[in-house]
Design a protein around this nucleic acid. Structure first.
Lengths: 343, 343
DNA sequence: AAGAATTAAGTTACCCGTAACGTAAATCTG
DNA sequence: CAGATTTACGTTACGGGTAACTTAATTCTT
């Protein structure tokens, strides 16, 4: 049974010092291997540290104002979307390897949630913040500007970031996919995605996509599943909705691979042949694509690498190394076999 | 461009107080709505807070020792496995709603990583810890015991937990699946999973599974993909390995649905019909199953609910409400159509 | 109107480490 | 061997809040 208490360390540095018969300062020096003590003293102090199970209170160190914390706030829209889970994994692994910790914030795709989270997390004096997306509330932007710590905006490349931006240009990515599908001969194309209140990368992507399709003489029918996570079932259901409401659609572009997979299953369940009766294109090149019988037409984005790059740039900034303010992580179109090959 | 600095708040409570013409203490009282000040004073102070953009430094509050922090350390093996991503989502959403933050630790399934992470995170004076799994290193256990904060062990139910345990009994879950498959008439059954150095829930599950199968007169052929994440491709590849090495296997049980899906794809790619030529059973009932043409035989575990329950029990313990020390979150066998129906 | 009770403040001390500075003992130097 | 230097410590002060205590001003009571 746990006693209610706020202090983790019953045992403080003073206690270790006292019992070892040295001053607090000497004990502190030993623990930081700072030098300026004899071997005999080191042994005495370390013996007490082990004996008492002393754990330093890093709060005190940071609080004293001479070191920055090893917290990095990381905001992620949601983890139901495998893409973001991978990005987070990349971030946390790299941060962990470099001695830092992620303080997570799931923003549910809303700027208000993000703002609240930023306010709270800043009060814990993080070393820096990694935020998903480039759109933030006005108050959030002010707080971020005043915080005076590194801010890395990921996912959605931003040529004039608050501080550092890593990701891809979603407009271009959407555009490339649109051009590719038009090049495959499709004219009437559907789009199935989710929709949230705020502008985001997916909507930017859709803009680029539409521009390419419409510029190539095609049309785009949109089907947005409101307030759903971009995963399998909304893909299945959204496809049903889309095809129920519009005739003559030859190909569907999805917000991501999970939704595309749901759509693929819908089409096959209705006896449609892919790609002969319906073209399917996804986005993200998720692991599931590695085992599917048909190679899904998609867009490869190095999610894990994106997360790692974000963490690395954060750490570089923290150690005052030069860091570019804007890194394009790139994407690659996967032609796949779920759309008819371009002529 | 960011100036190197450790303090987030250029502006401290003293400054707010000074400029508002009151003492630090009065300003503190206003900010905490503690009472004991006039309306005029409140307005004066709050005006300065807004004007200066003051953000409290919570480190100082916790450090002072009178409040516990709002950090909760959460250790998760990896996020490539959708199951754990869902659990984390459940935890963080609930914690967030209750004003707390998750400090993430990805342990890569190793006790040593977990131990290192525990040491670090404890030094930040968290309010509590949520750990995945019931197996910890000896040093870790000592630190956890001494920490004197709530510890919730999730995933793998533990009848004598360090503090609180939430999850399911994996032995029973494996046993039930084994009994079910034997009841379907299978005798020679394969298992495909990943393997790590340490004991874990998956191995407990496999033990239960083998007991049921062997008790029912069947045999289990194991195929463990070493040091891989339990996801699609290892499922595909592991199936190839398994079937290349053993003859006469009638049905395969997988560590999870993602692996099972990979196996299903392998079988179909080789022209085997499921379930006629090969039975397939997964574990976890992942979202992908909701759109597959065949309903995957699996075991439903309420992942999100598990995470939420863990967070709720943590918060209950923190507010000194009574909490059971061991909660079974339950599982449910999904018969599906990827194995032949029981006779 | 004098004393009691309440309200609205201010003062002091503390939390736990570490920077900066001070000092005594040991070692080195010429 | 005296003085300079180095080593091995100790002492003091500080950071940003808050608990606990004190004080001054206001309001209430009889």
């Amino acid at each position: 049974m746990v006693e209610k208490q706020s202090k983790i360390n019953k045992v403080s540095l003073s206690q270790v010092a006292r019992e070892a018969g040295v001053s607090k300062m000497t004990a502190s020096r030993v623990l930081r291997s700072e030098g300026g003590y004899s071997e005999k003293t080191r042994v005495k102090v370390m013996a007490k540290v082990d004996e008492l199970g002393y754990l330093p209170n890093r709060l005190a160190t940071v609080f004293a104002g001479d070191k920055s914390s090893t917290f990095v706030g990381v905001s992620i829209p949601d983890l139901g979307n495998e893409v973001f889970a991978q990005v987070l994994e990349g971030i946390d692994r790299k941060l962990g390897a470099l001695g830092h910790q992620s303080v997570l914030g799931l923003t549910q795709h809303t700027m208000q949630e993000e703002e609240n989270w930023i306010r709270t997390v800043l009060s814990w004096q993080p070393a820096g913040l990694i935020l998903t997306g480039r759109y933030h509330s006005q108050s959030a932007i002010e707080m971020l500007r005043n915080a005076g710590i590194p801010i890395v905006e990921i996912w959605d490349l931003n040529s004039s970031p608050l501080d550092i931006s890593v990701g891809i240009n979603h407009f271009d990515a959407g555009f490339d996919m649109g051009r590719y599908l038009v090049g495959c001969g499709y004219k009437k194309i559907g789009y199935v995605g989710t929709s949230h209140d705020t502008a985001n990368a997916a909507s930017t992507r859709l803009d680029g996509f539409c521009k390419a399709v419409e510029g190539g003489g095609g049309t785009v029918e949109r089907q947005l599943c409101l307030h759903d996570t971009a995963t399998y079932y909304p893909g299945f259901y959204g496809t049903e909705q889309l095809l129920g409401g519009a005739r003559g659609i030859e190909c569907i572009f999805y917000q991501n691979d999970a939704m595309a997979f749901g759509g693929l299953q819908y089409c096959e369940s209705k006896g449609m042949s892919v790609p002969d009766d319906m073209g399917i294109a996804g986005w993200g090149d998720l692991p599931i694509a590695s085992v599917m019988g048909k190679r899904l037409t998609s867009m490869h984005v190095p999610h894990l690498k994106l997360g790692q790059a974000a963490a690395e740039m954060m750490m570089a900034r923290l150690s005052d190394e030069p860091v570019e303010t804007c890194r394009d992580i790139g994407f690659r179109l996967i032609p796949g076999s779920t759309v008819t090959a371009p002529t």
